[in-house]
């Protein structure tokens, strides 16, 4: 009897192998015009079709870049986090902070998907069905410019990209020109997330936040930290004694009053002098066209005297 069962089992397995073998992938038909080869933030060469008509964006920053380049009408899918510009909210949603729905993305038949780091499985799946995916992960202002240029090239909007870059550079220069030659560069703590108020997250070296604080005439107290995204304990913040605290988590409802309530924080210079300011972190943390506004907002907080 056990031999009988064994036979059955073996034939079941053979069937399973057969099924797996038969259903091996067949590539989808390729579009005819010669594709464009672009290198994305992964350093990977991506074949982007010549006529990019339907674009899916998997991050708010990517959505903002697309709209700023006048490509908003080609965006057919965004994430639930994509809330700027207003028009983006009306577009079909393909995912949220936790996960992207690959099936949904494919059903929108995009010929270009703009992803970010941290979703390698999604990218691999999309590439498996021959959809061009550019992963955009800038680390500083120059690379933000570069990603905008890249999106411009990919979608045939080079001119719009150059115009946008020129105005962005102008905006940043206006700030840096003002800040140049300031005598005091105050110490700044940029709070990203204080879910644990005793150990808030901040941005350290190798982040564009760090660079923006410098451009805006401040010194990031986490600028010498070991890691780019890092938790700072109350003790450490007190020891560094920042003159200014910027609440990047103001969008999540954290206020200067909350900060003053935190045990031990009352001794920090910024708290004593009431120099705890909210900021719209979307202007800073989304590496897109609006970072210029973010840099200016930072400069206004750090050096209000320059903007009187």
């Amino acid at each position: 009897m056990s031999i009988h069962t064994l036979h059955k089992l073996a034939s079941l397995m053979a069937l399973a192998i057969l099924l797996v073998g038969c259903m091996a992938p067949t590539p989808l038909p390729q579009p005819t015009p010669e594709p464009l080869t672009l290198t994305d933030s992964r350093g990977q060469e991506v074949q982007v079709p010549r006529e990019v008509k339907r674009i899916v964006s998997l991050a708010p920053s990517n959505t903002e870049i697309l709209f700023a380049l006048g490509l908003g009408d080609r965006v057919v899918g965004v994430t639930t986090l994509c809330d700027y510009p207003q028009e983006a909210k009306a577009i079909e949603k393909v995912g949220d902070l936790m996960s992207m729905n690959v099936e949904k993305i494919v059903s929108l038949s995009p010929n270009l998907v703009l992803a970010i780091e941290g979703m390698p499985e999604v990218v691999a799946k999309l590439e498996e069905v021959s959809i061009a995916v550019l992963v955009l992960q800038p680390t500083d202002l120059e690379s933000i410019y570069h990603t905008i240029e890249l999106v411009g090239q990919a979608a045939g909007a080079e001119e719009a990209a150059q115009e946008l870059l020129a105005s962005m550079r102008e905006g940043v220069e206006a700030v840096t020109a003002k800040v140049e030659g300031v005598e005091k560069r105050p110490k700044v703590f940029y709070e990203l997330d204080a879910t644990d108020p005793a150990k808030p997250y901040t941005a350290g070296p190798g982040t564009w936040h760090d660079q923006f604080i410098r451009l805006a005439g401040g010194v990031n107290i986490a600028g010498e930290a070991d890691m780019p995204w890092v938790q700072f304990s109350t003790e450490e913040i007190i020891a560094q004694d920042p003159a200014i605290i910027v609440l990047g988590d103001a969008n999540y409802g954290v206020t200067a009053e909350d900060v003053a309530q935190r045990p031990g924080w009352e001794v920090i210079a910024a708290v004593r002098k009431g120099a705890v300011y909210p900021i719209d972190d979307n202007l800073i943390s989304r590496p897109g066209p609006r970072v210029v506004e973010g840099i200016e907002a930072l400069a206004r907080i750090i050096h209000p005297e320059l903007f009187e």
Partner: peptide, 11 residues
């Protein structure tokens, strides 16, 4: 081809 891709490559 989208339906094909969804069924055979994703689902």
């Amino acid at each position: 081809p989208q339906a094909e891709a969804i069924i055979f490559q994703i689902r």
